[in-house]
């Protein structure tokens, strides 16, 4: 049995940077697609609303694990080499987009109707209404729950381990395969996740309090 040593910790911390990178990819991709999902969801065109809503229902009704398998094997079928980070990045992007889209839709709808009416009376067109009146207000509402959802993204990157992407959870498994000290190793892994997530949780809560106090 190999003793747990400093190299193992360095290995875990390196893997944690992959966790962070994957989280960033998922958040960036999820934000772009998610904004589109949110805007379609409040569109005046019924078909677009239905499309967006269908997408949300579909993703939110399927386990992320299965989405990961589907993109991994799906990309393989399309003839692409099975690159775990691409499959994981895509899966998490589509996953995050559904949840962020739903969160942001709520924020857009929370902007009072009178704001639309007022800007309409000033002669702003639909795009200008969004750009100058509604979205700036919605963004303010959206920040706390969005930061909160980032915690979910970081935690969910652990599932990329199932398609062979070596991030923090996978690194823990690899070390465990040689050292056979699962309790210690997975506790350390959990502690690193906690160190990544807890500050985000605290920030989300502080932002939420501030938003409430401002009202």
């Amino acid at each position: 049995m190999i003793q747990l040593n400093a190299n193992h910790f360095i290995y875990l911390l390196q893997a944690a940077t992959w966790t962070l990178l994957l989280s960033l990819i998922a958040f960036a991709g999820g934000s772009i697609v998610g904004l589109a999902v949110a805007l379609l969801r409040v569109s005046r065109v019924r078909a677009l609303r239905a499309l967006s809503s269908g997408y949300i229902q579909l993703i939110q009704g399927t386990p992320l694990l299965i989405i990961l398998f589907l993109s991994y094997f799906g990309l393989g079928i399309l003839g692409y080499k099975l690159v775990p980070i691409v499959a994981a990045g895509l899966s998490l992007t589509f996953y995050a987009a559904a949840f962020l889209g739903e969160i942001w839709r709520g924020c857009i709808e929370a902007v009072p109707k009178t704001q639309w009416e007022a800007s309409d009376c000033l002669g702003l067109n639909r795009f200008q209404q969004y750009a100058y009146v509604v979205l700036p207000q919605a963004v303010k509402l959206a920040i706390p729950p969005t930061v909160g959802f980032m915690v979910q993204i970081v935690k969910n990157t652990s599932l990329a381990s199932v398609i062979g992407f070596v991030e923090l959870a996978r690194a823990g498994q690899i070390i465990n395969n040689s050292t056979f000290e699962p309790f210690v190793i997975f506790t350390v892994v959990a502690a690193i996740y906690f160190a990544l997530c807890y500050p985000l949780s605290l920030a989300a809560r502080a932002l939420e309090r501030k938003a409430h106090a401002g009202r």
């Binding site: 915690v151 935690k155 969910n156 959870a169």
Partner: peptide, 23 residues
């Protein structure tokens, strides 16, 4: 509540299954 909400379920499952059995 904070420990559980800020760590992945996958790792929690590993701790219960592999971790506890090693203990």
């Amino acid at each position: 509540v904070e420990l559980i909400r800020n760590t992945p379920l996958l790792v929690q499952i590993f701790i219960v299954y592999f971790g506890l059995s090693s203990l």
